[in-house]
């Protein structure tokens, strides 16, 4: 059985990154925007793992970085969701269009 070549994996991760970016720009629901950011971070994780396995298997730098990204993404999501809950209390909505008191 032949191994999956590196550039296939990179294609998947880059696609995932830009899908996440597209989602972040088009979605209006804050939770969905947060999910889009998670997509972007996960594409970075795939990148790191793939590079580490295919190109530099003798060192563990990439895998360590992935673990830290996962942990920090969780922390970021926790703070973001707390903020969104607090915003929901005052605005009664989690649509970003509703939270537009300050402009220009």
């Amino acid at each position: 059985m032949s191994e999956v070549p590196l550039h296939h994996i990179l294609f998947v991760s880059t696609a995932l990154f830009f899908i996440g970016m597209y989602g972040f720009f088009t979605r209006r629901n804050m939770i969905t925007m947060l999910m889009a950011i998670e997509l972007m971070l996960n594409s970075v994780n795939i990148n790191f793992i793939a590079f580490n396995k295919y190109l530099f298997p003798e060192k563990m730098d990439g895998i360590f970085f992935t673990i830290f990204i996962i942990a920090i993404a969780a922390a970021e999501a926790a703070v973001a969701i707390a903020i969104i809950i607090n915003l929901y209390r005052s605005h009664k909505s989690i649509d970003v269009e509703e939270a537009s008191e300050m402009k220009y």
């Binding site: 804050m30 973001a80 903020i83 969104i84 607090n86 915003l87 005052s90 605005h91 970003v96 939270a99 537009s100 008191e101 300050m102």
Partner: peptide, 8 residues
């Protein structure tokens, strides 16, 4: 309201 909007 403004404070939570800013944080978001």
């Amino acid at each position: 309201r403004k404070s939570s909007e800013a944080a978001m």
